[in-house]
Design a binder for these strands. Structure first.
Lengths: 230, 230
DNA sequence: GTAATACTATGACAATTATCAGCTTTAAAG
DNA sequence: CTTTAAAGCTGATAATTGTCATAGTATTAC
């Protein structure tokens, strides 16, 4: 199976590229550049002008924004099938987020021309992208509500559930995506020490188990109740 | 001037409807329903299935979402020229937000068919809506960062600056849009009492002046410094 | 005009969260 | 292998924010 051709790439099933026609996909495939990105390496930086988008084939990237107080807020985690940088390319603005790999990644860089010309010529594609962005906007609204109305404890509980639902567990029952305590803190918007303290507390209460950086969910029900405020 | 026809409506200049062609606009205009909404009245509720969008001709609406703890988080304020409910109609989902007028409003209800058929037939329109949504998504990201990284004091300072920039001031130097203290608290995601206390503090420090519910900005520079964290 | 009701305001206190310091463990570099 | 740096952890303390109680002040409805 030749999965270096977009036409055959399974990842495409998950994103808006599936609405492209054969010809358009061929163009994308011919112009794309495959890249490996090691854990910790940046894909692009906040304020950078993006000349294309990144289609994630494997691995996970954090999308974050530096706040005036010097802390990094993680706004989103992008994984297999997701396209990063779409927003900036569409709005013709510089990126408002930085992307850094949180695990080894395999991505395809797609020059923006392939995207913008298809946007102008293929209404199905445009509509598909639009639907996707509408969905992302809803998710962003939910994050706003969570961030402003829930306690740090609730947000951390929720973050673990999110990680389980979106990235699954490994064979030993640990969350498949391992984030540093600092990254967890940056996801929920708190100080690293506070995050660590709450993680210890969860462990004591038997909600989770840990091994090094790895975290596993032990009592999903209780964790969920906690996240919802009971 | 006949401004009961969308073709002649100035408001259209500000939103994606400007990308519609004559014929499409005619259809919209023929099917739209003009409504007056009194301050405090709802336009639609969270979870409701929307059969169309609302184009704001005058007045302001808050778009909010109930959090599990029973508090209402205001996610956005929509004003003249903005189209509400677009997201839900496009994603074919129930509304994730409630809309309530915070001042007397004059709106046009546009049945979703006019929107969805145009989305399928006019790529320019779709692209225009897409660009707009991309911009909204960026703004949502900024809100997430502010909510999670800034203190309540900073967020309130920022809210006043936002209100000045987006809705202006009246002849007496007060913010043109007057929100209740509770609404202000719900915008920044804090308890009403905390908001009141901080507003009193700002007044004492000479950053703002108040008269009843009305608030005026006295020292914009200091307010801005505070919001940025100095 | 007055009673009822909602909104604004403030104090006292409790809970949550951040900050700073120091220490231990783990991972990386030479 | 060992030295160095980074990440994880914990305690003490301060700052921020929420909650409850209470009272004054507007607004609204009758």
């Amino acid at each position: 199976m030749d999965n270096s051709r977009c036409e055959n790439c399974i990842v495409r099933q998950f994103n808006s590229l599936r609405a492209m026609n054969k010809e358009e996909l061929k163009k994308v495939s011919d112009s794309k550049i495959r890249k490996s990105v090691k854990k910790g390496e940046p894909l692009f930086e906040e304020g950078e002008k993006l000349n294309g988008v990144y289609c994630v084939r494997a691995g996970v990237s954090k999308l974050s924004k530096l706040s005036p107080n010097g802390k990094d807020q993680i706004v989103k985690l992008a994984t297999k099938g997701e396209v990063m940088g779409q927003r900036s390319v569409i709005a013709e603005e510089h990126s408002n987020l930085s992307a850094v790999a949180v695990s080894d990644m395999d991505v395809c860089f797609i020059p923006k021309e392939s995207i913008t010309t298809t946007l102008q010529k293929n209404p199905n594609f445009t509509l598909e992208v639009l639907r996707h962005m509408a969905h992302e906007l809803k998710e962003a609204d939910d994050v706003i509500v969570n961030m402003s109305q829930k306690t740090v404890k609730q947000r951390i509980a929720e973050a673990f559930l999110y990680l389980k639902n979106n990235f699954g567990e490994d064979n030993d029952g640990f969350l498949a995506l391992t984030l540093s305590r600092e990254d967890i803190a940056n996801v929920v918007g708190t100080a690293t020490e506070s995050a660590i303290r709450i993680i210890s507390e969860f462990k004591k209460k038997g909600l989770i188990h840990t091994s090094g950086k790895k975290v596993g969910i032990k009592d999903e029900r209780k964790l969920r109740d906690l996240a919802e405020g009971f």
